[in-house]
Amino acid sequence: MKTIIRFLLLATLLQSFQCNEDESVATVTPQQLAQKKQEILDYINSYSCAEASGCNSIAFGAKPCGGPREFLVYPNSVDQVTLQNLVDEYYEMDNEYNIQTGAVSDCMVVTAPSNIDCVNGVCTIID
C-alpha cells in the first residue's frame, strides 16, 4: 500500500514540473504588428514612381476568415523579393495574432485595386 501511495505522490509531483505549452509560444502584440506595418510602408515610401504603369499592388495582412485585410500599392522600382518577404513576415504575425486572440472578422472579400495611378511620385489608389 505504501508503494502505491508513493507512486501516486511521485506521479503527481512530476506532473507539476511539466512545461505548459502555452508558456513557450511567442505572442504577437498589436504594437509589433503596427511596427512591422510601418517598416513595410517606410520601405515602399523610400521609392517613387514616374507613371501609373510603374505601380502595382500586393495583398497585405490576414483576415481571420482568410484572405488579405487590404492591398498596398507600391512602385515597381522596389525590390519585389524584399517587399514580398516583408509582407510574408507580416502575414505570419497577423495570422498568429488572430489565432492568439480568437479574432473574428466580417469575412468580406477584399479585392485588389483596379485603378492605381502615380500621383506626385507616389502610387495611389484612385476611387
Rank of each mutant, 00 (worst) to 15 (best):
Q84W: 02
E70D: 10
L33S: 10
K63F: 00
S16T: 15
N115P: 02
T82N: 03
V28E: 08
I126Y: 01
T124Y: 05
G66T: 03
C65G: 03
A11N: 14
C123Q: 00
V25C: 04
S57P: 00
I126W: 03
C118R: 14
E70S: 15
G66W: 08
E51R: 12
N56M: 06
L13K: 02
V78S: 04
S114V: 05
I126E: 06
L13R: 02
L8R: 07
N85S: 15
D117F: 12
C118N: 14
D106L: 02
G61D: 00
Q15Y: 15
S77A: 12
Y47F: 15
Y97L: 09
N20H: 14
E21P: 14
T101E: 06
L13W: 12
V119M: 09
A26H: 07
N120V: 05
V87K: 03
E51L: 11
T124S: 11
L9E: 01
V122N: 13
C55W: 05
V110Y: 01
R69W: 00
E23L: 11
D22K: 08
Q100A: 00
S24M: 10
I5L: 14
L41S: 06
I58N: 08
P64Y: 07
Y90M: 07
L72A: 06
Q35V: 13
T27D: 10
T111P: 01
K37A: 05
Q18M: 09
N56W: 07
V78I: 12
R69V: 03
F60M: 05
A62P: 00
C107A: 02
T3S: 15
D88Y: 12
R69Y: 04
E39N: 05
T29S: 14
S105N: 11
E70Q: 08
V81H: 07
T3Q: 14
V28M: 01
V122M: 12
Q38N: 13
T29K: 06
Q18D: 10
A52L: 08
Q31T: 09
E92V: 12
A62S: 06
D94M: 04
D117C: 11
C49Q: 08
V73Y: 09
S24C: 10
I125D: 01
Q100I: 00
I58W: 03
M108Q: 08
C123A: 06
G66P: 06
N76P: 06
Q84S: 13
L41K: 07
S16N: 07
S114D: 06
A112W: 05
S24I: 14
S105L: 01
K37Y: 07
A26M: 08
A34H: 10
N120D: 13
E23D: 04
Q32Y: 03
E51I: 05
E39K: 03
A11H: 10
M108F: 06
T82K: 02
I5G: 10
V119P: 05
I44Y: 09
T111M: 02
V110E: 04
